[in-house]
Design a protein around this nucleic acid. Structure first.
Lengths: 232, 232
DNA sequence: GGCCGACGATAACGAAGTTCTCATGAGCGG
DNA sequence: CCGCTCATGAGAACTTCGTTATCGTCGGCC
């Protein structure tokens, strides 16, 4: 499956079209051509999202950007929400992959947990450096998560599976190693922690807290999660 | 005058309507009449939200329900989002009031904090009993919060002030009493905890956790917040 | 060579928010 | 009493956006 995310092969960032055309012309099985088309829609949407000023886009824009037609769009997607869902799933998969790599740099179970929290936190925080507009899975996808979570809970849950599984492994390992309490309902803790991390940007808004740098904020959150707020 | 929509005076549970009508009848300055009109829009929207099956409504519906005209609506509100914002502000104020009363039943600073967390948690959770559909500030407003937080952060922050102030007092008191750590950045903790509580329904969705009853879930969350997840 | 299925271009439709036009009725100064 | 203005209501019109439908074309396949 050519599930490759955003424009991971586009170096410049603009031209992912003629190459695919050429490829489609040469090896032309119906399946690969269809997947190619789907991918072009996805790429176009991603480009519109992070290269544009606003993170929103219209189906028309996606269609134009991808050089295809409305006709084709609705042939491959049941509607805009399916496009969004596909993008979100891809983002979650990609995020989980990145996090797995980071976490694998650690060996101690508690260190792995800590690493996960901090790294995921940073991924979900607004871009720390204004220079590169980069966005592997930036708060952009956090907004999606929000939308999907309320509009299509079941599908959203399915999309989250890769991340949840990964985190659950890590939490379980930490519990078995005795690094964290074992009597907590893991599943619930996993969900809560992911939600806390993901939606933490909101907490800054709620409390009108100026955005400090992501790393120290992540460590603060980690400290609270680890030891609580009670005096000990 | 064919205004006076269905039940704007029935008010089985909407406290702030008939009073204003009466007031408007007696002293009828332009100001109070205008406030009356605004209030009628707000009431109509509230009725549509919790008496309808879906929590969504259209401007047209609000207009019809309120027995007024589109013309008037846009004279008093800059757009739908201002209506939403007004509703949300009212909801937050009301919620803060209710919470203040509950919390005032406790005297010990830590008990007050605990009470706040648990009660607010329950208010933000889906209706526990299927019998009565109503709910003063149910997850309905949580969805609003979500929307506003991303669409209009500044206004959302302003709307949250009553709740944030109340909670901040409580946290500060607990810290000064030595019940919780004093070296944490209060403001950030306040925002984070409010966000955690408010958005906890999402965490259940993320982790595909079946919804347990709100009270025990609240206590679990409280336990984690208080003591952390680390083995001690 | 002729059918068939995919595709592009474009129009059309429907819902919802927003604006505009017009009429009416109330208060008010002359 | 007359006409003026302002607030309001009724409703059409405009806009955007998602979605569907129509039509024509082109390339492959029997």
């Amino acid at each position: 499956m050519p599930n490759n995310a955003s424009g991971d092969d586009v170096a410049a960032e603009a031209p992912p079209s003629w190459r695919e055309l050429a490829v489609a012309r040469s090896l032309d099985s119906a399946r690969t051509r269809a997947e190619n088309r789907v991918q072009r829609f996805l790429d176009a949407a991603l480009e519109l999202m992070d290269s544009g000023d606003s993170k929103e886009f219209t189906v028309q824009e996606v269609v134009e950007r991808s050089g295809q037609s409305l006709r084709s769009f609705y042939q491959y997607f049941g509607g805009k929400h399916e496009l969004l869902l596909a993008l979100f799933e891809e983002s979650v998969r990609s995020t989980a992959g990145v996090l797995r790599d980071k976490v694998d740099e650690e060996t101690d179970p508690l260190d792995r947990l800590h690493r996960f929290v901090v790294e995921y936190y940073r991924m979900c925080s607004p871009a720390p450096k204004g220079k590169s507009k980069k966005a592997s899975p930036p708060p952009l996808m956090v907004e999606f998560a929000q939308q999907l979570l309320t509009a299509h809970p079941a599908e959203a849950a399915r999309a989250f599976v890769p991340l949840v599984s990964l985190f659950e492994e890590i939490v379980k390992a930490a519990a078995e190693a005795g690094a964290i309490k074992g009597d907590l309902p893991h599943r619930a803790v996993v969900g809560t922690m992911l939600a806390v991390i993901m939606f933490n940007s909101f907490s800054a808004t709620i409390a009108a807290t100026p955005v400090q740098d992501a790393t120290s904020a992540a460590e603060e959150l980690w400290a609270v999660v680890l030891n609580g707020i009670a005096t000990r």
